[in-house]
C-alpha cells in the first residue's frame, strides 16, 4: 500500500512536470484570429534575438508601456526566433500568410541579413511594413583618459597608423561596423574591428584599453559616463543624441559619408488584411503619444520618428540602398 502510494505520487510528479513544461510551449500555428476583435486577441510579438537581446528587451518594454498606458488590454507574448540574425524571424513572419495575430519588431539588421547571410532568402520587401517607430542615434565612446577628443582626432590617428587602432563592436555587419568602415573609407584609412557577442564585453574592452573606441547606443554608455570612466566624443548619426547633445555629429566634423541609422519598427506578415494593418498602426500611433513612451524614449536616448504604412515602406527601401552601399564599402 505504502509503496503504490509512493509510485502514484511520483507518477503525478512526472505528469505535473510534463504539464508545466508543456505550458512553456508556444503554439506554433498561424492562428487566424477573427478579424473583428483584434483588441481581445492576444498578439504574438516576434523578435529576432533571444531573451535579453536588444530587440527582445525593446519589445517587452514597449508592450509593458502600452499595457500600462492602456493602449492594449491583453499582454502580448513575445516569441523569440533567434536563428541567423533575423533570417529565422523573417522567414517565420513570411510563413504567416494572412494571419492577423503575428507581428514583429525589426531593426536595421533585417536589411543587412538578407544581403550578407547565406540561406537568408526572405527580404524586407516580401513583408508588410506596419510602422517605423524610432531612430536610435549611435554615439562614439572612448575611455575617459583617451587621447582622442573628437572623431577627427581618432581618424587622424588612424591615418598615422593605418590598421592599428581598434574599434569594439558586435558582428561585422552591425550598424556600428558599417559606419566605422564607411568613415574609414572616406578618410582613406582603416582600423581593426573587434567583434564581441555581448555589449558588456565590448564595454569591458573599452575600459581595459584593448579597444580604442566603440560606436553604440547612448544608453549602453550612460552609466560609465556618469562614473567618469568613459566619455562620448561624437554622434554617429545625422542628428545629435538626446542624451549627449553636446557631442558633435560626424557631419559637424566634416564627414560626408551617408551613415546607416539604427532604426526600430514593426513588420507584419506578407498578406496581412487591411483592417488588421490599420488596427496595428492605430495602436502604435497612440502608443508613441503616451507619456510613458515619451519618458522611456527620453531616458534611453531614442528619437521617436513615427512612419506609417507606405511611408515606412519607402523609408526602408531607401535605407536598403544605404545599407547596400555601406556593405559594398565595407567589402562584405
Amino acid at each position: 500500500m505504502f509503496r503504490t502510494r509512493k509510485i502514484r505520487s511520483a507518477l503525478i510528479l512526472v505528469a505535473l512536470s510534463v504539464l508545466v513544461s508543456a505550458c512553456g510551449f508556444d503554439s506554433g500555428g498561424s492562428g487566424g484570429g477573427s478579424e473583428s476583435d483584434f483588441e481581445s486577441t492576444s498578439v504574438e510579438f516576434l523578435v529576432h534575438t533571444g531573451p535579453g537581446g536588444g530587440s527582445d528587451i525593446f519589445a517587452r518594454d514597449l508592450i509593458e508601456i502600452m499595457r500600462q498606458e492602456e493602449v492594449i488590454s491583453e499582454n502580448w507574448p513575445v516569441r523569440n526566433e533567434e536563428a541567423g540574425e533575423g533570417a529565422g524571424a523573417m522567414s517565420y513572419l513570411a510563413g504567416q500568410g494572412d494571419a492577423t495575430d503575428t507581428i514583429s519588431a525589426m531593426t536595421t539588421t533585417w536589411l543587412t541579413t538578407p544581403l550578407t547571410i547565406e540561406g537568408a532568402e526572405i527580404t524586407i520587401d516580401e513583408l508588410t511594413p506596419i510602422a517605423g517607430l524610432i531612430v536610435e542615434p549611435e554615439v562614439m565612446a572612448v575611455a575617459a583618459d583617451s587621447p582622442y577628443k573628437s572623431l577627427s582626432d581618432f581618424v587622424d590617428a588612424a591615418k598615422e597608423a593605418p590598421g592599428e587602432l581598434v574599434q569594439a563592436g558586435g558582428s561585422t555587419t552591425e550598424v556600428g561596423a558599417l559606419n566605422g568602415a564607411s568613415i574609414a573609407a572616406e578618410a582613406g584609412t582603416d582600423w581593426q574591428f573587434l567583434s564581441f557577442e555581448e555589449v558588456g564585453q565590448r564595454i569591458a574592452a573599452l575600459l581595459n584599453g584593448d579597444a580604442d573606441m566603440m560606436f553604440g547606443s547612448a544608453s549602453d554608455f550612460a552609466a560609465q559616463v556618469d562614473a567618469g570612466k568613459l566619455k562620448i566624443i561624437a554622434a554617429i548619426s545625422p542628428e545629435p543624441s538626446p542624451i549627449f547633445p553636446d557631442a558633435p555629429t560626424a557631419a559637424d566634423e566634416g564627414f560626408e559619408t551617408t551613415l546607416v541609422p539604427q532604426v526600430r519598427g514593426i513588420m507584419g506578415p506578407p498578406d496581412i488584411p487591411e483592417e488588421a494593418l490599420e488596427y496595428y498602426q492605430g495602436v502604435f500611433e497612440r502608443a508613441l503619444e503616451t507619456d510613458g513612451w515619451k519618458e522611456y524614449a527620453e531616458r534611453n536616448g531614442l528619437v521617436t520618428e513615427l512612419r506609417l504604412g507606405d511611408k515606412w515602406g519607402d523609408f526602408l527601401s531607401q535605407q536598403n540602398e544605404v545599407v547596400k552601399e555601406a556593405l559594398k564599402g565595407a567589402d562584405l
Partner: peptide
C-alpha cells in the same frame, strides 16, 4: 554563423543551424 566574418559554416543551407 561566424561572428567575425558573417560567413555561415557547415549549416547545409539550414537556417535552423545558423545559430
Amino acid at each position: 554563423l561566424d561572428l567575425f566574418t558573417g560567413a555561415v559554416r557547415f549549416t547545409f543551407g539550414r537556417i535552423e543551424l545558423a545559430n
